[in-house]
Every structure is written in structure tokens, then in C-alpha cells.
Design a protein around this nucleic acid. Structure first.
Lengths: 358, 358
DNA sequence: CGGTTTTTGGCAAACGTTTGCAATAAATCG
DNA sequence: CGATTTATTGCAAACGTTTGCCAAAAACCG
């Protein structure tokens, strides 16, 4: 220890590598090697050192290490905004899955932002350029960029999740939104539905584009015109799913020729939509079938239980971390590519054949 | 830059303080002072330095700074386990609120764990003793502790949230669970309810103890016996709220003399309970009134909309961060104390007077 | 204008690791 | 048994900041 500590004994801050070295009667560098490098030091001295370290309760200083080796073991996650939606747990689930994988790999997860205002952007870039983080997982289509600095040229390995950003040169782990919606729409058509109501996410959003495209593909395949589907919403973010559903119910009420099937692009929308629509005396699935996206557990306990397309968040998280860790490990960056993990429909009582077919 | 960079120009890693100093024609130390210390350097040189820094896109290296000053700007949050429950968003909301406050204070949030197994414990302690973090917010009653090291004597400022740990010497930010439940129970009694059904969290859990005590207090105050309430559950964690509710519905079905009011200790429990109970032909609130805890937004869209006690997560998060930052700022640790923030009931259609009173 | 205070800026030593290089000891070989 | 290799350890220089201390310059004062 350094002089003053001897005097006062004040600092409760842990033992240093130097202390371990002294106790074990070896040089500081030997301790370093013993603790990290396997095989580089004699087994007997290693044992001595380990004993000393344990005795002192030694914990290596992460910042000193990070500074020396020029890299941290922190991965940051860049969120599209809020952490939570109405009832859907997509983002928390992603976080959980990512964090689990990261910890196994010896990394730590840091939340970079919970907003996309300028102060957050700056914050993210400080993290990236300040050497604090080793890589990033991004859940947003907008790469942080403010006065000259952009995450794109930070040199950090970045993996995109949920959104396909392979165009921007990012490894992307996504689910087959379009296909999943196409299939479910096809199934609705098979049941006899001909008029659809689509609850949209924010206009232009990747998910919305993909999912709506899925609907259209199914219609086309069945020889139905694009006019068979009415869109509602499009101006609010997914975070406001409940509001979208409520608004959509109003829109729905005004339609003269009611659609018989509703495709909601998030469970939140479906939940509030159903709630409102039931209040007007319509029954699900008697009058209207409803299917939505996300696979929130709560859907099972709605009345009626809601059919929903479950996003494979768990697997996506794992895959994203794997890709990121690969990128960190290797020097060369592999060509940007999409990893697609399949969503799966959880069929429940909210969908049935339309009345006309029964 | 150092020699090799000149040659290859390879490293995309950012400019150093030395580079800024050179460009501005001053010493490194002046740059440091200009960027951090206000007033310690002439306004003109400061301007020059700022210009140089901006031009180079300079971002200070956080680890070097942290090493030198002996402290990081990272706060870790220790979770009780999973990040998400069924439909309740308590933990994500807490996270969001905390992170927001932290960022405003110039700190970063790191998720320390998503589990409480040994590897996670060790991980948490490594963070604490490795100088990586500056403080901790804990959402669990169990302080991490493994082979000799304990978070308790890490010297880190720690604030507990949701759980009262003032006994253990921790500043605690909590809500008035007991009082809130007492009040709502009293209100149910006032409406005429005399037989209650209580859906419990894990036996011995702080929240469960408090909330159940609240029920009993209200009963006693009304001169009702402890036998007026039946407990269900008690062996599962809040994370399995849906399962608890389902199980409770089974229990309920077997009761000969049905309670007329149900007090669930989480929204998840209430949601699945209601779903199942309705399936047996009972109506809410006709046959049974239901009130729960958490204030999940989704409750508004259940059928019927659920009365729920809203936890003031937002305020609690702010308060916790304030306390933590205070503790970091000051040298002396203030006496452990509880900060109580009031929950508030959101009354909805799931509670009414019992049939006998109408 | 000489002397005293106040600003301002530079030097160099930390902070706690890792790691290239060199030195020593031990082992192997011809 | 001397020479060469190999295993083990130590020395000291990094990593990029901050900051105590000192010197130079500027400002102020009588």
C-alpha cells in the first residue's frame, strides 16, 4: 500500500495487485500473468498467488485493465426510445436475453439511452468514442450522429436487432415479419374472410412496411384486390399501441361495410381495440376475428384469448450477441448479412371463420 | 499521434488530448483544465482549445479518466431476477426512470444481473470491488455475498428500492404498500364485503408481508376476524403471477362459501384469475369484486377494467437516484432512512358492492 | 516603478494494470 | 561438461487522463 494508507488505514478500497505480489513474494507482473495467462507461470507460484489473492479478497481493477489493453468489456444497447410498451414485453425480453448471453461471454450490458433526443445522442457517441464500450447492439433504424461524429465510423462492431439494417452495412438479426403476416393473412382468407382491417404502426417504420407488405402479398396470392384491406393508424409509435387501438376502434365504428378480420401490428393495439369494440356490442370472434403481433403472455388471458404472432426474442438476442462477439473476436468484418429467425403464430380463440361461412 | 499511426494511418480510434493540445498550441494539462475546470484557464485559450477539440472530434477516454480520479460514472442496478413479469411493467419502468435521472446527473446505468445464481453474484461483486461502478441501486432484499466479499462492505453507496432495507442500514425508497392495501380493503368493507380472498406473493417476501398486514389491519379496524380472509398462493414468485392467478382460480372454485372480494398482490395474478373465474360463469364485479396491485396500463383494457393500486415507480426512481447521488457527493453517509412515496388507487369497474347489498 | 498578489500555463507524477524484453535458472543435448 | 534451448520470473514502459506544484506573466498597489 502507499504511505498514507498505512497511517490512517482509512481506505476500504480493495487490495491491489501489488499487495498480492508482496504477500506471495513475487513480482507484480507474475501476479498479472498468474491470474490471466494460463501456463505462463509455474504451478507452485500460481497456487501461492491464488491463495494470496483470495486471502486479500483481491479484485482486479477493471478500468486500469481496460486502459492498458485499450478495450473495455462493456456492450451498449441503443434503444429506439422507451423501454416498455403497454403490455408487450419485447424490449425487456430482448434486454434479458442479450444480457444473459453477454454475461456468459464475460461482457457487461450498458443501457446507452432511453430516448433519442440530442442529449442522448451525444451521450451514446461519448460512450462509443470515449472507449467505454466495446460494441453495440442497436434496436433502432437511426444511427446516432451529432456534429461530425457518427456511430457508423466509430470503429465499433455493431449488430442491429429487430430491424433489418443490412443495407446500412450492419449485421442484422430479424424475424420474418412479412412472411409471418402473409401466412396468417392467408389463413384468414382460407377461413373465408374477405374484408380486412389493418392496425398500422408508424408510417414508414420497417416493421410496418414489412407487415403490411405481408398482408398485401397474401391478398394478391388469393386474387383479392388491395382494396380489401383498410388501414388505420400510421401516425403513432408502437409505444402508444393502446392509443392506436382505441383510435382504430373509433375508425372501425364508422365503417359502413365492416371488415371481418383485424390484423394488429402489436398486441397492445389488439388489446385496446378489442376492449373498445366489445363495448360497442360486437363480439370476438363472432363478428370480428383478431390477430396481432408480439406474443405477449397476457394475450392468453384476454377474453377471448388472442391469437398472436410470437416474436422469437430469445433466439434473436442470442444470435445478436453471438454475431457481435464474433465481430469483436475477428479482425476482419464479415460481410453484412441478415440472420432471420422465424416467428410463430400462437393460435387462440380470437380468430374463427366469418359468420357468412358458418 | 504516436509514430506508427503516422506511418499507416490505420487506427480509426479517436484523437487524444495530446492531439488537441498540439493543434491548439498549448500543453496537455491546459487542455484538461479547459475542458473540465471552469475558470481556471483564460477565455481565449479555452476558445482555441474548444475549437481544436471540435475540429478533431475529440472525446475524452472515460477509462483513463476513471483510473486517474479513482472513480467511474457508472451506477449498477441489482435486480431480483427476471426483468419482466407477465404484463406488469414495474421493473422496466423503474429502469427507465432511474436511467433518465442518472443520465441527467451525468451517470450511466449498468445492469448488473438478471439472475441471482452464483455466477451473477460473483459478477456483481467484481463490478463493485473492481472499481467499475460508483454506486448501486438494489431491488432485492438479498445483498450479494460470496466467499468473503460482500456488497455490504464494498464501500459503495447503495440505495434500496421497492423494498425496505433500512434495517440493514440502507437508504430505502419504498411505497406505502401496507397503508394502500389497508385503505382499499377498508373501502371494500365499506361497500359491504365481508369475505375476502387474498392472492399472495412468495411467503415471507417483504411486499407480501406488508400487503397482507394491510388487509388484516383493515379487518381488525372493522371488527372483522382474521378468518374473513382466505389466502391463496404463497409459494411462487411474483414473476409467475399468471400461474398464481390460475392456481388461485382453482382454489376459489373449491370454496363452498365464496368470498365476494379478491385482493391480488399483482396485476398479473388478477388478470389470469379473472380470466379463469369468468370462464366458470362468475361475473366481475357482479359475483366477485377484484382489486390488484401495480397499476399496469393494460388493466384499463381488461373486461371489466381492473381496479389497481398504482405504484409510483417514476417518483421512486427519481428519489432513489437523488439519494444515491447525494450519498456519492457527500463524504459522510447519512443515517439510513426510509423515503416513502404514496401509491394511489385507480378505481375501475372491477369493484362494486356485493350482491347482498344491492 | 519596485514589490506584491493574482492569473495562467507547463512539467511531471500519479492511477493499477499488461506486456515486451531481458535475465536467471533449469533442462536438454551433443 | 560446455553449449544451447526452454521454462520461469522480474524490470520497466506503456495506456490517456488529472492535478499538485512551480514558474512566468500580468495585474495591481503604494
Amino acid at each position: 500500500m502507499n504511505k498514507n494508507k498505512e497511517v490512517t488505514g482509512e481506505e476500504p478500497s480493495g487490495a491491489l495487485m501489488a499487495d498480492v505480489a508482496r504477500l506471495a513474494g513475487v513480482a507484480i507482473s507474475t501476479v498479472s500473468r498468474a491470474l490471466a495467462n494460463p501456463g505462463r507461470v509455474n504451478e507452485k507460484t500460481r497456487a501461492k498467488i491464488n491463495a494470496a489473492a483470495r486471502q486479500l479478497g483481491y479484485t482486479p481493477n477493471a478500468m486500469a485493465r481496460g486502459l492498458r489493453v485499450g478495450k473495455s468489456n462493456i456492450i451498449m444497447i441503443i434503444l429506439p426510445g422507451s423501454l416498455y410498451y403497454g403490455a408487450s414485453q419485447i424490449i425487456p425480453q430482448v434486454l434479458q436475453s442479450i444480457n444473459k448471453s453477454l454475461i456468459q461471454g464475460g461482457y457487461n450490458l450498458m443501457i446507452a439511452n432511453l430516448d433519442r433526443d440530442e442529449i442522448s445522442e451525444r451521450h451514446i457517441l461519448d460512450l462509443a468514442f470515449g472507449g467505454s464500450v466495446r460494441g453495440a447492439i442497436i434496436l433502432s433504424s437511426k444511427l446516432p450522429e451529432v456534429d461530425g461524429r457518427s456511430l457508423a465510423n466509430s470503429g465499433l462492431p455493431i449488430v442491429s436487432m429487430l430491424l433489418d439494417m443490412s443495407d446500412a452495412g450492419l449485421q442484422s438479426v430479424i424475424t420474418n415479419d412479412r412472411e409471418a403476416v402473409r401466412d396468417v393473412t392467408a389463413e384468414l382468407i382460407r377461413l373465408g374472410h374477405r374484408r380486412f382491417f389493418y392496425l398500422a404502426g408508424p408510417e414508414g417504420n420497417y416493421h410496418d412496411v414489412e407487415r403490411y407488405a405481408g398482408v398485401l402479398e397474401a391478398l394478391e396470392a388469393a386474387g383479392l384486390s388491395e382494396g380489401s384491406v383498410r388501414r388505420s393508424g400510421g401516425h403513432l409509435d408502437y409505444q402508444h399501441g393502446f392509443d392506436i387501438g382505441v383510435q382504430a376502434a373509433d375508425d372501425f365504428a364508422e365503417l359502413t361495410e365492416k371488415p371481418t378480420a383485424v390484423i394488429a401490428t402489436s398486441d397492445d393495439m389488439a388489446i385496446s381495440f378489442v376492449s373498445r369494440i366489445q363495448r360497442t356490442g360486437l363480439s370476438i370472434p363472432g363478428d370480428v376475428s383478431v390477430v396481432s403481433f408480439d406474443g405477449s403472455p397476457v394475450c392468453e388471458f384476454c377474453s377471448p384469448p388472442l391469437s398472436t404472432i410470437k416474436q422469437p426474442v430469445e433466439e434473436m438476442g442470442r444470435a445478436a450477441v453471438d454475431l457481435l462477439l464474433d465481430a469483436i473476436g475477428q479482425r476482419q468484418n464479415t460481410a453484412a448479412v441478415r440472420t432471420v429467425i422465424r416467428s410463430s403464430l400462437i393460435p387462440r380463440e380470437s380468430v374463427a371463420a366469418p359468420k357468412s361461412c358458418r
